[in-house]
Amino acid sequence: MAIRIGNGVTVMNQQVLLAGVGVTPFVPLGQGDARALAVCAVRMAMADASIDFELIDHIVLACAQGGAGNGEQLLAPLGFSGIPLINLSDGCASGHAAFHLARQSLLSGESACALVVGCDAMPVEIGSHAFFGLREPSPDSPCQAVGGGLLQQRIASRQQPLELYAAQTRQLLQDFGLSAECLQQVLNAARQRALLDPSALLAGLPGSGWQQPYLATPACGAAALMMCTPAFARRYGIQADIACLASLRGADFDDDLDPPSVFDALGRSTTHRLVRQIYDQAGLGPEDVDVVELHDQSVGDYLINSAALGFCRDEQLVSFAQDGFGRSPGGAVICPSGGLLGRGHAPGATAIAQLVELSLQLSGRAGARQVTHARTALQHSMALGRAVSLTLLQRTSS
């Protein structure tokens, strides 16, 4: 039996399980050592799964600031045993891309056990463009806001992330009846939730010199996942009862940016389209989701993405913001970890840290932030709207 994964491609119907997880504390820029963070997260995930390093068939390492051979350098303290290692560097899309690739290796039968690692440790003086994985613009390049007559100009707006997020905030205040107090209330609620998350040590700390009031704080951190097939889990006696039901990545259609919209430049249309696809693939809907970790790079992202994912309507955004980080109207708990706004954002590690959080929630190990009776979880990540990713997880045991 086979399942469709898009564009007519099929793979054997093989379940993928999350066997072990690890996440380091996220710390301010300039205070993290990439090798120490990555090795710590991997050792935590191996201990959680009770798996030796030599049993891993495949490693994918995500690092937004990584270069050639970065993974081999970061994981050198664990030793070299001929395990294939792939390095990925794709800005804020890096973490989910690594997860998706490792999952595909398991689905295809290429691997029985895969390790996914996300890590970033950036210097305190890093600029906003470099943080997002972009090249610094030349002094004579014009700042492209969302708008203009050419598709290329609208896409170019993503090369100016701070201006794009500032435009997002202005649009929220102008078109949705939100106030600055509402936006601050969401940010405060995120930071309060983050106080319950031992990996989120950035709550309330000042950001970088280019930090805007409603953006997530840049951070250093690492996260790791051990993934395996059911046969591997049975063979080694691993108690793995979190399954990945689906993992998707999507991008723009031409029509998404015509007419121009700052929300669609930041991924609203793609998120809305992709979530319908993943729900259809899994036979679920937003009403079936108990807990969500979405990409809240900004307060605006939290609000707009909550609506795009089906957890509220656009006309409910004011009351949704006033409720802070409570449950959606359908009952899902959104960002119990505090999200990027509460934990901080280390681009290569963030998506994997989201999956770690959801695994902890589904296995009942999230401590004071535990969502009761959580069985189905949705993870959402973005890279300035140019790439949107979704993952559905579900606890297989009753």
Rank of each mutant, 00 (worst) to 15 (best):
L88M: 13
C143A: 12
C40D: 14
M12G: 12
L358S: 05
D255A: 14
E315D: 14
D90T: 11
I278T: 08
P137A: 14
A145Q: 12
H380I: 06
L29Q: 02
A64S: 15
A62Y: 07
L358I: 10
D175I: 04
L274P: 01
H295I: 04
H58G: 03
L101P: 02
T391G: 13
C113R: 03
S337Q: 08
A34K: 12
G330V: 12
A145V: 11
G133Y: 03
L18D: 01
A374C: 11
V371K: 06
C119I: 12
I304K: 00
A194M: 05
R395P: 04
A233L: 04
L392Q: 09
D314W: 11
P137S: 11
L178K: 01
L75T: 04
L178V: 00
G6K: 11
G127C: 11
P347I: 01
G331F: 09
L173F: 05
S319P: 01
D296R: 04
V356L: 07
R158C: 13
A62M: 04
P260R: 09
R43G: 04
S319H: 07
P84V: 11
F99H: 08
A219V: 03
T229I: 03
P259D: 00
F53N: 07
I352P: 02
D290W: 15
A114P: 02
H272P: 00
L101Y: 11
P259G: 06
S389A: 15
I59W: 07
P230Y: 01
G148I: 11
G250E: 14
S337V: 05
A383W: 05
L274V: 12
F176R: 12
H373D: 15
L358A: 08
G342D: 01
V16I: 15
Y165A: 06
P142H: 12
G326W: 00
N188H: 09
L303G: 00
L390H: 05
R249F: 05
R343C: 07
G342C: 02
L340T: 02
G300M: 00
A346C: 07
N188S: 12
L29P: 01
P347A: 02
G331V: 08
G300W: 00
Q316C: 09
T376I: 15
L274A: 14
G32N: 06
G204A: 03
A62W: 06
Q211S: 14
G326Q: 04
L88H: 11
A224S: 14
G67S: 09
G118T: 05
C63I: 10
L355E: 09
M122L: 15
I126C: 03
N305Y: 10
R395E: 07
D52R: 13
R154Q: 11
T24C: 09
V146P: 07
G109F: 06
D323L: 01
P198W: 05
D280Y: 07
